[in-house]
Every structure is written in structure tokens, then in C-alpha cells.
Design a protein around this nucleic acid. Sequence first.
DNA 1: AAACGATTCTGAACAGTGTTCAGTGCAGAT
DNA 2: ATCTGCACTGAACACTGTTCAGAATCGTTT
Lengths: 196, 196
Amino acid sequence: MTDHAPGPRDRLIAIALDLIDRDHPEDLSLREVARRAGLTSGAPAHHFGNKMGLLVACAEVAWKDLSLAMEGTDIDATPAEAIFHKARAYIGFALAKPGPYRLLMSRRFVDKSEFAVLSTWRMRAVQGVVDQVERALGPSDDHKFPYRRSVAMWSLLHGFVTLNLNEAISADMRDALIAEICECAVQVALSPAQSP
Amino acid sequence: MTDHAPGPRDRLIAIALDLIDRDHPEDLSLREVARRAGLTSGAPAHHFGNKMGLLVACAEVAWKDLSLAMEGTDIDATPAEAIFHKARAYIGFALAKPGPYRLLMSRRFVDKSEFAVLSTWRMRAVQGVVDQVERALGPSDDHKFPYRRSVAMWSLLHGFVTLNLNEAISADMRDALIAEICECAVQVALSPAQSP
DNA sequence: AAACGATTCTGAACAGTGTTCAGTGCAGAT
DNA sequence: ATCTGCACTGAACACTGTTCAGAATCGTTT
């Protein structure tokens, strides 16, 4: 059984992803998706039950895309270089695909109950970073310390792209800022705990 | 002319702020606001023209709240302590008032054209941080360096609260994470540029 | 070939939304 | 007494997601 015949469900997902790619996920209209697929208003509900059902299906694809984009870093690199590259890949994905990125990060689109479905690719992306940080920091007394620093690094990257997507900071220094953020990401992830 | 008679416009703003306080700004319904004010559906449009007009009016109040919350730090403190306190205040505000905070940070609610209206309190809040970082870092060859570090620090804080509000990270380590993030904020803001 | 069953979808309804706008009061100033 | 501007009504319009009985279609089984 080959898959060259996309099936109506996958066709709807593709259309929805196409719309999300340029617009805000919140603005996605089930009726618009149905219209583009040549169907009537109630058709999407049959396949996904819900608007959120469709968005969850789209989020699955998006998590896979993000995860793969961050895995593409070469192995032969120092820990700092590896994290720097991962950070760049993360920022690049978010800025290039604002719709899908927002879809991944907002709990308004993906309910807690549906969240488990996304765990595979999501965990793979998250764990990839945590592992890298843990390996780089080496053994420590506080075994939660690498996790906290991973969260801090993720916060830095996520905050930066969010502020950019919301045009909260001007775009003319964007390249310099991206470089600075990636440096800070390395610094945050790898510098040891400071004595208080 | 005293202001003990709130006027219909301010009454609508108060009702809207009350609704935003617990829900997402996106979920605010003009008709619901009108209903609570004992008015009909078209009334809010008369005062604010637009749904965004009402949200902009609410955002003005919210920016003031945030700005004041961050100014309440004492003067007699080291630069590191001052920034640490500002970071805590920022995180505290965002986690305590998710609705207003989201309102401030998303361009979906406040259009670019309406943006100038908010500049007073917004600039005051932003400039307060940048000044603090500039003063702490001292003179430098690259005069844009303090700004870039301020953006990085803001990114870190904004990302952390956003991830929290979206329940992207578990809440059981929240206090430890807040402390760690504030330390990282100081580190990001005050550590000098590293040689490449 | 015939019957069955599941999948897919229709088409209409329902409740809700933001926005528009002609018209209605109604206060205060001229 | 007239005018003027403000606050608001109430109905319309064009959307939205969701529900659901029924029709059409396709694959499999008998």
C-alpha cells in the first residue's frame, strides 16, 4: 500500500499548513480550509472532530520539522559550537516559519489532553538540547543544574524570536542581535554556577 | 473638574480589564463587555471604534502597571542587585497577570499605527532597564553593546514567562527556575563581551 | 451479483462573533 | 427655542465553529 494518494485527511492538513505558514494559527478558518479543499463546512469536523484536532495534526508535522532542523548540526564540534549551531537553527526556524512556530508554543492551539500525541518529536527536540548541555557541563553536585540551564537557554531563544515575531524590537539590527543571542545562549548553557 | 464620575468610556475599560485579568485577551468579547455594562452590542464601537481600540486603551493601563512594578526597586543597591530585582518584578508581574501581560506583548492586539499611543509608559519601562545595564557595563568601544545585552536580557525574561504561561515547562520547580533565570539575567546583562 | 457496513461528505441549522449605520433621545450652549 | 454634539439603540450583514440527520460512495463479505 503506497501513499501517493494523499487521502482527504492529509489533504486538509496540507491546506491548513499552507494557510498557517503565512498567517496566524488563530486566524485559521475551518470553513476556509474546507472551501479550498472543495468541501462543505462540516467536512473537517468529520476528520478532526474539532478545530483543535486539525491544529494538533498540523503541530505534529511542525514539531518534526523543528526537530529535524536542529538535528542537522555536525557531530565534530566543541560543545559550545554545537549549542551555538542549535541555537541558530532554532532561531532560523522560528523566524522563517512564524505560523508553525507559534502553533508549537501556544497552549491555546494544543490542549493538555492532546499534548501526549506530540510527545515523540517534541521530546526528541527538547532532549537533544538537554543532553548536549548535560554533556558540556559535565558532572555536578546539583543534578538539576543542567536542566535549569537548558530551560534558561530555551527561554532566551524563545523570548528573542517571540519579541521579533511581535515586532517588539526593531528589525534593522536583527543579524547582530541573532549573533549576540546565540553567544549568550552558549554562555547561559555552559558557564558554571556562580557562588552567591 | 474631578474624576469621581468614571464616565462610560472608563467604565468599559474597567470591565474589559477585569475580563482580561482572568482570560486571554483574544477571548474578550465586545458584546460581553457591553452586556456587563448594561449596553447593547454597538455601544463599544462608538467609544473605541474597534475591538483593537478597546484593547489599546487597556494596554495603556497595563503598561503603566508593569512600569511602576519595575520602578519600585531601591536605589541603594549594586547594579547586579538592581537588575536582579527588576527581573524578579518583571517575572512576578507577568505570572500574576497573564492576560494583561499577553496584551502588552502581542502585536495582534495593538496595531503598529496605534503603537505610538503607548510609547510613554512603554518607553519608560524599557529605558529604565537599558539605562541600568548601560550604567553597570560602563563605557565600551561598541556603543550598541549595552543595547544588545538589554535585548538579550529581555528575551530571557520574556521567554521564561511565556513558556510558563503556555505550560511548556512544568510548574513544580518554578521557584528554583525563577531564581536561576534572574541570576542568568544578571549574568547576561553584565558580563563583558567575550573575545571570539 | 447482492447485501452489508464503514467511510466520507452534504446541507441546513444554531449560537456566537465584530462591524456598520440610520435614527433616537438628551444634555448643554447659543 | 434652536442648534449641536454625545451616547446609545437596534437591526442588519458577513463571518465563525459546532452539531447532526441523512445521502452518497466504496470495499468487503456473503
